[in-house]
């Protein structure tokens, strides 16, 4: 399954679509694009994870990194996370640091 990552910009938001499995083997692909996006100082970061079937702590670390770099004023939104991903976010308390929506914008 591996991972595909695609970044686009809309208005002042960066939208990264992530599909497949996000584990410690594939995380560097997303990490690289998040680092690139962060440098452009977007007003919002949106991760479309509707087709993300698996996410380990390697993905959580990228979310934490992004929040740390972007600062509290920049929102981080997850579009349509699957139920198990929401469970992981709840278990680790990160659910309170992200917005969860069914569609963006």
């Amino acid at each position: 399954m591996s991972l595909t990552v695609h970044t686009q910009y809309s208005e002042n938001a960066a939208i990264i679509t992530v599909e497949g499995s996000l584990d410690s083997a594939t995380a560097p692909q997303l990490d690289e694009q998040v680092k690139e996006v962060v440098q452009k100082n977007p007003e919002a970061l949106v991760l479309n994870v509707e087709k993300l079937d698996f996410m380990s702590s390697a993905g959580l670390r990228i979310i934490i990194f992004a929040k740390q770099k972007l600062g509290a004023s920049v929102s981080l939104t997850l579009v349509k996370p699957q139920e198990q991903l929401i469970e992981t976010l709840k278990m680790t308390g990160l659910i309170h640091s992200v917005h969860i929506v069914d569609a963006y914008p």
């Binding site: 380990s56 680790t92 308390g93 990160l94 309170h96």
Partner: peptide, 19 residues
């Protein structure tokens, strides 16, 4: 307590083992 912290303030290690 760590899990309640904002991402800016939380320790980044140990999450995997916790999961």
């Amino acid at each position: 307590e760590d899990l309640k912290k904002e991402p800016e303030d939380r320790p980044i290690g140990g999450l995997g083992i916790m999961l």
